[in-house]
């Protein structure tokens, strides 16, 4: 099914997507409509244009391919499915996501992957092609965040306060130098080869965005994990 979103209000557009009996939906001329495919479980949606905030919030198994840039809060509290962004994504991408995967060709804004968590077989993943803004993976409790640093020139691969409050999961940063201002609760080690599940994520990213696999999977990465020697907790006294 094809939907021309021109002049459609977001409620109208989302109702049309929900009402569609077809599994495959192509939406064109999207200009800022919010909440597209919220909690969607059973569709393959192709979007052309620039959707508004909270695209794929609570996504529950559907796939979204976005040919354009995403705005804020893409994949908020996502539970399953896949979001592929053929551009860059804004702030709070993948907030508190618990399952599914987000692949971004370009950069993400601030606060990406905050409070990402894993649950049983649900291992959420975000692969960022370019660089991430500050506060990447704050409070991360599970899942995997990969930043590939593609076409970023001299700029650092992540911004400030990466992983503050991290207490689970892992981050892989493709870079030569350890990011400055890593908080004490985060441990960083340089690794020569990424593990197979992360390799599969990078390969998927390369395939989606037509990049040379070896350039990315063969590179050196820094692996960030919570430092169990230095846990993130305050000491309390019963009163």
């Amino acid at each position: 099914m094809k939907i021309d979103a021109k002049d459609m209000a977001c409620e109208q557009l989302n109702a049309a997507i929900k009402a569609s009996a077809d599994r495959k939906i192509e939406v064109t001329d999207v200009v800022g409509q919010r909440y597209i495919a919220t909690a969607c479980s059973d569709k393959e949606i192709e979007i052309h244009g620039t959707p508004g905030n909270a695209m794929g919030a609570y996504l529950d198994g559907a796939t979204i391919a976005l040919y354009g840039n995403a705005q804020e809060a893409t994949g908020d509290t996502m539970n399953g499915g896949e979001i592929d962004v053929f551009g860059s994504a804004g702030d709070a991408t993948g907030y508190a996501m618990r399952g599914g995967k987000i692949f971004i060709r370009g950069d993400v804004g601030y606060r990406c992957g905050i409070h990402m968590k894993a649950y049983r077989d649900n291992k959420p993943a975000i692969v960022i092609g370019g660089r991430a803004g500050s506060f990447l993976g704050e409070y991360q409790a599970g899942g995997t965040i990969v930043v590939l640093g593609d076409e970023i020139g001299d700029k650092p691969v992540v911004g400030y306060f990466c992983g503050t409050g991290m207490h689970g999961g892992e981050m892989y940063l493709r870079c030569d130098r350890i990011p400055v201002t890593l908080p004490p609760q985060v441990k960083a080690e340089q690794i020569d080869a990424i593990p197979s599940d992360v390799k599969a994520l990078v390969e998927r990213w390369c395939k989606l965005f037509d990049k040379d696999v070896k350039t990315y999977t063969g590179a050196k990465f820094f692996k960030l994990t919570p430092d169990s020697e230095n846990p993130y907790k305050r000491m309390y006294t019963s009163n």
């Binding site: 618990r98 606060r111 409070y139």
Partner: peptide, 16 residues
Amino acid sequence: MIPEGADAISPAPHHD
């Protein structure tokens, strides 16, 4: 919906 034995931290603000 978190692993057993893992800390459950609710940040003070909603970061979004």
